[in-house]
């Protein structure tokens, strides 16, 4: 029988620094909840809003796969590998921090906020050569179907990471149903509902709710209203 965990949106950690308002699904920075440390190798799911002209100054990372998905506005990225880029809604950015990387991320606009998801996944290999990638996604490819945006394979759709993980994003009209088949045995699926109402194997999810399910090989997903959601299939153990 499948195991599940429900994280209602209003139970997330809340950090409001003025320039940054972040909702933490899992323990992060000053939010510490031993019951909310990770879902398998998915360690961080931050729902960030950054004020105009503000951002994260240069800071280091190592040994982590870091994925950014902009939801609103433009985010400017600079890193120690010489990459300077702006990512916007409809794109996805990935960094393998590996042996070490320094980067900064700023809201490109002085006037409007930028909203993005910051997702960290434990890598399946330590001390890899740092890398950065960013790709545009076709928004039409997620209309009433699952659009793969991340996988372990450089030749597959979306970006790739050093982990046996697959991410999909979707924008469903009310009433659309799909069945998600797990890609790998031993993996779990974390559903993060971006907007609207969904049911996942009978569990109702409202906007920004999260739901993890594992020890199963498929999941039934139905949009109860128009809905946008992110599926993250990850190993439940290293």
């Amino acid at each position: 029988m499948a195991n599940t965990v429900l994280h209602k949106a209003d139970t997330r950690g809340d950090a409001n620094h003025g320039w940054l308002h972040s909702k933490h699904t899992f323990s992060f920075a000053n939010y510490y909840n031993p019951e909310r440390m990770h879902f398998g190798v998915l360690r961080v799911l931050n729902d960030d809003t950054v004020a105009g002209g503000k951002g994260f100054g240069t800071h280091p990372h190592d040994n982590m796969e870091i994925i950014s998905i902009p939801l609103e506005g433009d985010l400017e990225h600079k890193d120690s590998m010489g990459n300077v880029a702006v990512i916007k809604n409809g794109e996805i950015q990935v960094m393998s921090a590996g042996t070490g990387i320094q980067h900064s991320e700023y809201n490109k606009s002085n006037n409007s906020t930028v909203k993005f998801l910051q997702i960290w996944v434990f890598p399946n290999k330590k001390n890899v050569t740092p890398r950065y990638d960013q790709i545009p996604l076709n928004l039409e490819d997620r209309k009433n179907k699952l659009q793969q945006i991340l996988s372990p394979n450089p030749d597959d759709a979306g970006v790739w990471i050093h982990q046996n993980a697959w991410f999909h994003i979707a924008n469903f009209d009310k009433g659309i149903t799909t069945e998600y088949q797990f890609k790998a045995k031993g993996n779990g699926l974390y559903v993060f509902n971006l907007k609207g109402d969904l049911t996942v194997d009978g569990q109702l999810l409202n906007t920004r709710d999260g739901f993890g399910i594992w020890d199963t090989d498929k999941v039934q997903i139905t949009a109860e209203t128009d809905a946008e959601f992110l599926l993250m299939e990850v190993p439940m153990a290293m």
């Binding site: 920075a29 440390m37 280091p60 990372h61 982590m64 921090a97 960290w120």
Partner: peptide, 13 residues
């Protein structure tokens, strides 16, 4: 313990 992330938001946790 292994510290993941390099002086990141995970450190304190």
């Amino acid at each position: 313990i292994q510290h993941w992330g390099g002086g990141s938001g995970l450190l304190k946790n």
